[in-house]
Computed example of a mutant assay.
Amino acid sequence: MNKECLSGEKIAVVIPCYKVLTHIENVIAGFGTEVWRIYVVDDKCPEGSGDYVKKACVDPRVVVLYNEVNLGVGGAVMAGYKRAIADGASIIVKVDGDGQMDPSLVSVFAAPILRGEADYTKGNRFFDLEELRAMPGLRIFGNAVLSFMTKFSSGYWDLFDPTNGYTAIHADVARHLPFNKISNRYFFETDILFRLNILRAVVHDVPMDATYGDEVSNLKISKIVGEFLRKHCRNFFKRIFYNYYLRDLSIASLELPIGVALMAFGTLFGLGEWLSSSSKGAITPAGTVMLSALPILMGLQLILAFIAYDIAAVPKQPWHRRLVDKCKTITNA
């Protein structure tokens, strides 16, 4: 889908701004005619990004929004989402203001949504292995670990690069997100995937190149590891409860608790018997070992079966298309 095909759509861009004064003007200048409106969100920026854009930028598409307090990238994006929805945008694209994201890719991110193939698209810098040479090794490892954790917590097993902030969303889907519950800061990109899974929205990765310049990241890995782990665990248990016990019941609803119970029994029983035998200086009987190993193996098989079911359950029918089809059915009735 080319830019001419997108020109009739109301594609809005949201740019959260915090300490990006040296890059923001070039980012805005890079957007093509397919972009309908550009929302610059000054997240209580100490550099006064919002005021600078108002003075330096003459593009009539630009609207500057201000957060009274610093809310983080998630809070800034949510402010932009709300305004874009209120103004009648059909697609909302989020682009960082630090110059790492190519503004010309807006049409690439919007196209799968406009074709009815996805509700939400996000960038993936890991498609081209040659391009990965430009990415620091520590960042590659960190993204791999975070991606694996995100697959468990969000349920989108086919996605990678969860911290990539280049995203696009259909306005009808964004309208149904719980804005007051989504994490405001660095966990935002991952948390929104969890919320989208609860809506059963379809999410697609969009290949993009990794670009690094002289910008300095505000993200400190050592400070967010504990927070990310805690929130991933919280989202995982919430998703499992919502999707497999509250909203629906399936064979997987039985496989997980039975598998966990069997593994726990086998492990605790085996450990107890081993400690008892060790304290007496005796050899643990083969029958006792088997009585411990069998439930562990059975439990492992059930848990793997649950994971296989969960992988196959990744949403495939776009959420906003279901709304369109429902409206058509009601109209034709």
Score class of each variant (00 low, 15 high):
residue 204 H to I: 11
residue 70 N to L: 05
residue 217 S to D: 12
residue 106 V to E: 05
residue 282 A to C: 03
residue 212 Y to F: 15
residue 69 V to Q: 10
residue 63 V to E: 15
residue 225 V to W: 11
residue 208 M to C: 11
residue 95 V to Y: 05
residue 118 A to V: 06
residue 37 R to E: 15
residue 13 V to T: 10
residue 325 D to G: 07
residue 84 A to N: 12
residue 274 W to F: 14
residue 228 F to C: 00
residue 167 T to D: 06
residue 248 D to K: 14
residue 164 N to E: 10
residue 150 T to Y: 00
residue 182 I to W: 06
residue 127 F to T: 11
residue 276 S to E: 10
residue 245 Y to V: 06
residue 142 G to V: 03
residue 293 A to C: 04
residue 77 V to E: 03
residue 72 G to F: 02
residue 85 I to E: 04
residue 158 D to V: 01
residue 176 H to M: 14
residue 279 S to I: 07
residue 259 G to R: 03
residue 275 L to N: 09
residue 212 Y to M: 06
residue 278 S to H: 09
residue 151 K to R: 15
residue 33 T to Q: 13
residue 277 S to L: 02
residue 134 A to F: 06
residue 219 L to S: 05
residue 321 R to S: 08
residue 319 W to Q: 13
residue 232 H to S: 09
residue 229 L to W: 04
residue 201 A to C: 05
residue 122 K to L: 14
residue 252 A to S: 15
residue 77 V to H: 00
residue 37 R to Y: 04
residue 65 L to A: 07
residue 299 G to C: 09
residue 3 K to D: 13
residue 274 W to S: 12
residue 61 R to L: 08
residue 212 Y to R: 15
residue 129 L to E: 14
residue 331 T to F: 09
residue 132 L to Y: 01
residue 12 A to D: 12
residue 146 L to V: 12
residue 288 T to S: 06
